[in-house]
Amino acid sequence: MPVFLAVDLGAETGRVQRRKRERDRADTASIRSAPRVAIMAATPPTDAELNTMIRARLASLGIDLDQLPAGTTADPATGSPGRDSVLASLRSFVRGSVATLASFQMPAPAGSDPAHAAALSQQPAPMLYPSIGTAWRR
């Protein structure tokens, strides 16, 4: 059964993604062995929807963006940005970093049966401190 990912990188980051994919074309082994996925693009969220999501997420953590100055003008006393400027930056972050990370799937070993690729991609473990891990694994 194919794995479906709902991915929207957005127009703003598309160029960056294409450039990186071109640079990474040498990864033939790992790309060939990556899980076969069918991309089913969801409807990209609008700015207004992202604003609501961002505000709601932050509010759920107890962070009120209204602590910042209204509009796009920075607070002259602290330099902290206006909340509209921050929202624009956070929208870009969600469309870029969050989407890129969410869409990434670990490659399966080269030569893997494509039918097993998705399952194999689940196997690599996370490592918070990879360099320290080399010592602890000795």
Partner: peptide, 19 residues
Amino acid sequence: DLRGFGVSVTGWLQGALLG
């Protein structure tokens, strides 16, 4: 105290958004 982060606040808010 979001303003207490001064010009550096955006990175901290980005971190709070990453799932």
